[in-house]
Nucleic acid binder design. Structure first.
Lengths: 343, 343
DNA sequence: GTGAAAGCGCTAACAG
DNA sequence: CTGTTAGCGCTTTCAC
């Protein structure tokens, strides 16, 4: 492969060409208010002719602002996060920001490395979804105390000093359960997720509240403690069908669990939705393509990303890092009724 | 929200503390060979105590290396690209690189903006998957001529001066078709994608080659010109079923097309795989969850990302930007047989 | 509206 | 093995 080419042109080069100083060129390029239209245009013309591209590294060093925000996600392979990143990057584009990404692989150690990398890169802010096995978030708080604003999305935590954007999981659980009740199902079960994660606990809470609102009894044996997997959906069905009085509907904590539920029900020749109703959570891509199509709760992932970006922009512009206004964005969950629950 | 905190500590601060110069501290932190173990440790200790984090912005400006690579993808929402990014970021992590992301939205103008942003950020290299409607890649070549190495992945182009990593689409098309032949299907049709995109043209070429190898005639009316969508799969089936002599199997250019094919076949009460075989391409997540499960060709997305990163690292280290070695990585497509094609 | 001067924090070349 | 010196390319006072 051949050698790379020569040095980039700088504002000095432009300055020389026009017999002005670099400061003037800088002002012209940055649309400084007190610069004459004539020089602005002359500079633009020469910059274009010399094929100039601003060196953001130098400008960042001088100004103390990088126009970069860092995003920490568990994995780019997971649909949900890809979709949120899409929202973040779209907003960032509009506002002239660049987006660095870092994967935690659900591991606190990687999370720390990511934060360290972002601090070194002097990002203007950090957006993060906490790794599943992270309980202590002091590494985030340390970064915050170093002056970097942080906003959590989806996976958050009880610390109120950090703004966050989440979907209303409680309401989502409520809506899902209510929908099954309205469709005439009488004994509604729930396959839950790990309860130390707030999002899953909230969905269970919503399930309970809906039962109560419609004067249906809450029965402990109708909640199966799953772990967010196809397998746990299958096991839940096996368990429920072995009960003396089995349920006739299941609200699963998320779509893969619901998928397992559907597979196992089919295995047992139970007709969905006639004999048994199923609702999931997340509105995964496959939901509308399986048979029967799966009713689910949409989490507005793209909006989540956009709102998270807006929150961090706000903090950056106001030069604040602690959430003393107690800012947060709670998105509405959207029920997507499909065949699996409508009779 | 409360105010942000004070100034970051610098190598000057550490130097003062130890009565050495900044240069020594810099060397110690960078594990320069000719530095005494004693000072190295002393520096490490003070750096730790003062809570020092290296300012990569400054070091990039001085050294001319940012340790950042830029990645241009059509959209982070698309599974395939999320998965490739996962591979890229995983390698980058290991090698101490950061990853900047930019979405082209399949639009050449955004693509240009992305390249411009990356040039400004002085990234050490660019990995890109070309937008669908981009035919002229001169914006990439311009960046290359400015000294930034570029590697394409998946969506590539005929310009041989840029290294790339792709899956062997020709072979994938061949394998898919051969599989249907081996399963005893006699008249095998193809729903194609936009032919100006090499990946789709290659799959068609593989289809033709397999027919030839097994001495089956190629019939023009058995190729439906689709546009990579569920809809085009449905239309293809309508077209094929209207033929005097309809086919008994379809190799679809990718999984969403195949999904449309399956939906329309079911609509017409045609039994899959007994009466009709279907094979897709991409091995999307939903493939194994639909009924019948869809046979597909896996593209090794994560490996693709890793290999792309390795190629760019190689160019960066050798300080070359043109692909005079004619480097490329061609990944093996992996057939994933499932219910939709096995009788 | 523009110039002069300084410096952001780091690394690299040259000494010794 | 360490110090000295210089400067990467830009922005930002402070002048005038």
């Amino acid at each position: 492969m051949s050698k790379s080419t020569s040095r980039n042109t700088t504002i000095q080069d432009i300055a020389k060409e026009l017999n002005v100083t670099a400061a003037t060129v800088s002002r012209a390029l940055n649309n400084h208010p007190r610069i004459s239209e004539a020089t602005r245009q002359a500079v633009a013309e020469v910059a274009d002719r010399l094929n100039y591209t601003r060196n953001r590294v130098a400008s960042s060093l001088r100004s103390g602002k990088t126009n970069v925000i860092g995003v920490i996600i568990p994995s780019a392979k997971i649909n949900f996060f890809g979709s949120v990143v899409h929202g973040i990057e779209t907003m960032a584009n509009e506002r002239g920001y660049n987006v660095l990404i870092y994967q935690s692989n659900e591991d606190t150690e990687y999370e720390k490395k990511g934060i360290q990398a972002f601090l070194s890169a002097r990002v203007d802010g950090i957006l993060a979804s906490i790794a599943k096995d992270t309980r202590d978030i002091s590494h985030y708080l340390d970064a915050r105390d170093k002056g970097v604003p942080i906003v959590f999305f989806d996976r958050t935590n009880d610390d109120t000093s950090i703004p966050y954007v989440v979907v209303d999981d409680y309401k989502g659980g409520y809506l899902a359960t209510e929908h099954l009740i309205n469709q005439g199902y009488k004994r509604i079960a729930h396959v839950s997720g790990q309860q130390h994660l707030k999002i899953f606990a909230e969905r269970l809470r919503g399930y309970k509240a809906a039962l109560k609102a419609y004067k249906l009894p809450f029965e402990k044996e109708l909640v199966f403690a799953g772990n967010v997997s196809i397998e746990s959906g299958k096991e839940a069905v096996k368990h429920f069908l072995s009960l003396p009085e089995p349920p006739d509907a299941i609200f699963a904590v998320e779509d893969f669990t619901a998928l397992g539920v559907i597979k196992e029900l089919k295995e047992n020749k139970i007709r969905i939705p006639e004999q048994f109703g199923v609702v999931g959570f997340a509105n995964e891509e496959f939901d509308e393509h399986i048979t029967p199509a799966l009713t689910s709760v949409d989490q507005q992932t793209v909006t989540m990303g956009k709102e998270a970006f807006n929150l961090i922009m706000d903090m950056i512009n106001k030069k604040v890092v602690r959430n003393v206004d107690n800012k947060k964005v709670i998105l509405e969950p959207l029920l997507q009724p499909r065949a699996s629950s409508q009779r």
